[in-house]
């Protein structure tokens, strides 16, 4: 059975092409690109909400995209127990829809952050299945609002339900920080309770090809396919 997937494009998405290439190159299956005004979604195994500045990120990051026509279908897809991955702006959209807990606020230094970061997996799920415990992944981030925040009660729930998928960590060498954007408990990615929806700030679609600085981003798709 070949793995089918789709990427949603909103006005202002700018990582949609990158996500499409990522899926085409790694899944070798059918990949659809869906415009935000569509009202139906093909039956696929994985949907990606890509990074970018949907609707200019005016109002609040991801807020306007969460009201797009296609979102009803995206929610149905998730309720159907199929995979949904929000990367960067996609993560922000997922919290705005309410499929994921918490919110993404301004980075602690109040500046855009575009650099390589290091993450490792926290709790096991189908998205990080192929990643070893304590394996350090190098993946770029590029965001203004990537500082994950939630109240203590939610945080406890996220921990108890093992919903924290990735956390920022220190790399192998001297020149990097542990928690680059100030996220609560250095959270870099979380899932929903059923663990079929993942939101993450780092961009795995920028770290998979031979010429990229790292190929660690492959592991997410490999986890889903295996």
């Amino acid at each position: 059975m070949s793995f089918k997937s789709a990427v949603i494009t909103f006005p202002g998405s700018n990582c949609d092409r990158d996500a499409l290439c990522y899926l085409k190159d790694l899944t070798k299956g059918e990949v659809h690109n869906i415009w935000h005004e569509e009202t139906s979604l093909p039956k696929v195994d994985l949907v990606i909400l890509p990074g970018g500045f949907s609707f200019g990120d005016y109002l609040r990051s991801g807020a306007m995209a969460s009201k797009s026509k296609i979102i009803d279908e995206v929610v149905k897809h998730a309720n159907d127990n199929r995979y949904l991955l929000g990367i960067c702006n996609g993560f922000q959209i997922l919290t705005e829809i309410g499929l994921l807990e918490g919110a993404l606020i301004r980075n602690k230094k109040l500046k855009f952050l575009g650099k390589n970061c290091f993450i490792k997996k926290k709790f096991k799920n189908n998205f990080n299945f192929s990643i070893k415990d304590n394996q350090i992944l190098q993946i770029p981030v590029a965001h203004n609002e990537g500082n994950f925040y939630c109240d203590t009660e939610t945080l406890n729930l996220l921990k108890n339900n093992e919903q924290i998928a990735f956390e920022y960590c220190k790399g192998e060498f001297s020149n990097n920080e542990e928690n680059i954007n100030g996220s609560i408990e250095a959270i870099a990615g979380i899932t929903n309770k059923k663990k079929n929806v993942l939101g993450m700030m780092p961009h795995p679609e920028r770290a998979y090809s031979d010429f990229h600085q790292s190929q660690d981003g492959r592991l997410i798709i490999e986890s889903l396919i295996s």
């Binding site: 700018n14 290439c21 500046k111």
Partner: peptide, 16 residues
């Protein structure tokens, strides 16, 4: 890096 880190240098996925 203080300057460059404020720029997205890897979007479009083709940066070497």
């Amino acid at each position: 890096s203080w300057v460059f880190d404020q720029y997205d240098s890897t979007v479009m996925g083709d940066t070497i």
